[in-house]
Write a protein that binds this DNA or RNA. Sequence first.
DNA 1: TACTCTATTTATAATCA
DNA 2: TTGATTATAAATAGAGT
Lengths: 164, 164
Amino acid sequence: MTRNKVKLEYITNDSSRKATFKKRKKGLLKKVEELTTLCGVEACAIICSPYDTYAEAWPSKSGARNVLARFMSLSHEKQGKKMLDQETYLGQRVVKAEQQLEKLMKDNREREITKVMYECLNGVRSLEGLNLEDTMDLFVVADKTSKMVAKRIESLQKNAGNNK
Amino acid sequence: MTRNKVKLEYITNDSSRKATFKKRKKGLLKKVEELTTLCGVEACAIICSPYDTYAEAWPSKSGARNVLARFMSLSHEKQGKKMLDQETYLGQRVVKAEQQLEKLMKDNREREITKVMYECLNGVRSLEGLNLEDTMDLFVVADKTSKMVAKRIESLQKNAGNNK
DNA sequence: TACTCTATTTATAATCA
DNA sequence: TTGATTATAAATAGAGT
């Protein structure tokens, strides 16, 4: 992007490709951090780098560690909305308020664990370093996903049976 | 970054924060795609956006879909290395060559499924749209993680018992 | 190979439509 | 409020060390 305009295609020269990678990786990280700071959002970039043993992840300040947590809480919200009708709405607001604190604490924990999970998935951390509590929580997260998928399989198999 | 130099801090004004977010999100995506094209790496950015219902993920061209696949293959490689001694090395090279094609096909499939998993985790896709084959493969990936964690828990519990 | 230095290109903040 | 415009800040390709 300077001195010469560069064509947007794979850089075949090994050394200049590496140099460009290093520069742009740095630039990209900076952009991610700026976005999180300026706009108050959580963001990260993940790069499967050929120049490092592992894929690299930058969770920036707060990172993407709550992506999974969000997904899970969204599933719950959706279920909730379906069951919710106008009559029960007002009564539930009280319950909701009471549940807020508990949820906040739970969310924080889930974020922590999601961070750990991401680190494991990205190979920057192994399970060996985890204590029992963290491992248990990670298990819960992994197990949730697993069960969710199992249900879906069951549902699909039923449908397949019906269509025959 | 222009007209005026901007202080790197949270933008309190709602509309300008949103405008900046939109611009910078676009810019960041472009940078990610350029990096993948120029340097031949896989990369993505994940943003938990307050302006959209779901967290957004950009897998760019190839994306981060193989992050999990990498993690898993790394685990296997490590196990392999431990079991491998000098004597068996040469004999195994033949087997390895034969396994290459199978592995390549398997890897491609794993990438596909990892993409799907990421999309689910990021909320941009629900399990409802998956066919049986994809769901089964997703189950395998989720189940692997789950079992891995279960083993770790077992190991930790044993250690805790020994130390008492 | 890995920094440092700029000439340029690119990204974007403020402004305007 | 979203979409262009443009003046300026920031990123960076290539060269030099």
